[in-house]
Computed example of a mutant assay.
Amino acid sequence: MDEQEIRKSAALEERHWWYAERRALVRRLVAPLPTGRAVDVGCGGGGNTRVLRDLGWDVTGLEYSPVAATLAASRGLKIVRGDSRRLPFADGTLDLVMSTDMWEHIDDDEAVARETSRVLRPGGRALVAVPCSMKLWSGHDVALGHHRRYERAELVTLMEGAGLDVVDVMSWNVLLRPVARLRRRHNDSESEMEEVHPVVNAGLRLAVATERYLPVGRLPGISLVARAVKR
């Protein structure tokens, strides 16, 4: 992702429906876990890192981009610069490794999966969110620097092959998938991360939040969210 896109995403992070509901998802999935030492790999502006911190985790945000790392650190978070393919943590020292919308940016995602497994203690948790399905591939992905979108079985195979036992893979942002698919047919080169009118923003948040109460986790969505345990 280029510097302009990073700055735009950071500026939108506090109010944009996508980021707000993604933070709510992270909070909901992580809150039941006992706290410990965590890393948010590819933390960007640090929105999800802050969720872990507020839940009581000793969390470090790891970010490759100097621009994003500086932005996250300016928000009072503990940030280190590093490469997700060579995590700067000792073997078996972390209780949680979280990566939200990061693996798709890396050419060698097998290395990222192996490193995630390596730094987790036995019984430690991985929480990984990735964009779903190459059927949704568009200029949005190109603009954000994606290498791929993932199918469910592909993500499970990748994580299991790295030594992680996948507990669950759920779809997220299911109700808006038809809208995204229609829009992306006409998107050749632009990111969809942009300012949204407050009324529309509230409506989109409501649509995503409604999924919490509907049995849609196995239907195709815009994202996949995987939870796994280190063997």
Score class of each variant (00 low, 15 high):
M1D: 02
Q4N: 14
I6K: 05
I6Y: 11
E13K: 03
E14K: 05
E14N: 07
Y19Q: 08
Y19I: 02
E21Q: 06
R28A: 15
P32Y: 04
L33A: 08
A38P: 03
G45W: 10
G56N: 12
W57N: 07
E63P: 03
V67C: 07
A69P: 07
A69Y: 00
G76V: 12
R85F: 05
R86Q: 14
G92I: 08
G92E: 15
T93A: 10
V97L: 09
M98R: 03
M102D: 06
E104S: 11
D109H: 08
V112N: 06
E115M: 15
T116N: 08
V119C: 13
G123E: 13
L127N: 07
P131I: 01
C132I: 10
H140Q: 10
V142E: 10
V142L: 12
H146I: 07
R149I: 01
L158E: 11
M159A: 05
G163H: 04
G163F: 01
V166F: 02
S171F: 06
W172G: 00
N173S: 13
V174G: 01
V174F: 06
L175F: 03
N187E: 09
E190N: 15
M193W: 13
M193T: 11
V196K: 11
H197C: 12
V199P: 13
V200N: 11
N201W: 02
A202W: 14
G203A: 11
G203V: 10
R205I: 09
V208P: 02
Y213I: 11
L219Q: 11
P220M: 00
I222A: 10
V225N: 00
V225Y: 00
A226F: 09
A226Y: 06
K230Q: 07
